[in-house]
Design a protein around this nucleic acid. Sequence first.
RNA 1: GUGGGCGUAGCUCAGUGGUAGAGCACCGCGUUGUGGCCGCGGCGGUCGUGGGUUCAAUCCCCAUCGUCCACCCCA
Length: 424
Amino acid sequence: MSEKIQSLRGMPDILPLDAPVWQYLERTAAAVLSSYGYAYLGTPLLESTALFTRSIGAATDIIEKEMYTFADRNNESVSLRPEGTASVVRAMLQHGLLQTPGQKVWYQGPMFRYEKPQRGRSRQFHQIGAEVFGLAGPDIDAELLAMSARLWEVLGISGNLRLEINSLGSATERQRYRQHLHDWLALHKAELDDDSLRRLETNPMRILDSKNPDMQALIGAAPKLFDHLGDTSREHFDQLMAILDCMNISWQHNHRLVRGLDYYTHTVFEWVTDDLGAQGTVCAGGRYDGLVELHGGAAIPGIGFAMGQERLVALLQQLPQDFARQPDVYLIIADQSLQQQAIVLAEQLRDQLPELRLLTNMGGGSMRAQFKRADRSKAQIALVLGADEWATDQITVKWLRNQQDQVAVSLQELGKWLQQNLNS
RNA sequence: GUGGGCGUAGCUCAGUGGUAGAGCACCGCGUUGUGGCCGCGGCGGUCGUGGGUUCAAUCCCCAUCGUCCACCCCA
């Protein structure tokens, strides 16, 4: 026996039992996104390392220590994508898709960050994201949020989520505030914990995010970003709030919401839940008005979000709903000499009824064994094909989930019969 | 990267310093072509891995790997 190879740490399989929830989430999201006019955009999992270092921010943990970076065979530094936005911007620019304003795209797939796994966090994880380019106003911010709110509604998890919003202002406003905050915090160095002291120089705004209870008083007293915004930024924010109110989307202004990635400007938001432990952010995003320019394009504004599929799946799994689709029919072969005929019959039924979920017994077995499998398959009915049936051009139909009597149906009529009697 | 909990059959877990069990699952049987309930039987574990202590370790010690939770970070 050779040694068993296991999956890499933090790189889980999606097992058949969980697959139905995943597929439900993905097709529901795809439907909602497309109903707002978003087109799918697929980008590679592997990109030039520079793409990410340039856009995400050199001081972030993602760049500093979480990227899967290595030299490919051509000795070029490549990285597995830690997030989706950078690739989308790259692709849009590369293919000249930003000429017309209002481009809407979405993506889905695995992302990679070398982190220590815990609840709601793994090294390979999946995101569904949406991005819009060329629209600077709060109207699209509002629509994007409405779209996410609608998705929660459709999925049945809106009761678990709340929306937190903030504005980071323009790049210069943000820069100015950052300096101001740094100076203020520096006066209170004695009250900062170790993590905050470290962040003071690298990313002081993240101190506002601290979970340390001892820090909360200080954070509450710190100067607020919102008070340092210019009129234009405030107006953008106010208008967005007004539209959200019109749509009855409730929100909270979280002054401490700063987001981790460097490219955000103006509107930032998070959908958070209390039902998933420490990793409560299920969907997050914001505006990134300078990012396209940063990648060599024109000064085209953008906004987008990404949702964590593992976290959404975890919420969906708390619902009483069963997402699995059970088979309709299990075909039992009472006489192994009829194996060929049974398989042909199954194919004929699939021709007639493309929607039919039909399992044909494989691998032989006694009637008892086959009925056991039929029962376990959760099929509605069992079909029995044996010598008696074959001799009379009939098939035996037995209901497995109710007490209806077993009946014989002619093989010619079987397709029609199933169509009329299943359909539940 | 830091801290803590846990690693015994496919799953959920008992257990003892003298090399192991239960429930569920799986397979078969309870007569000839009928599942779900019940009964009987069976398959299945180098007790995560490597060292050490000991006459002897699954149980004690160390290391390592994995896993879970939290910090950090973030979706």
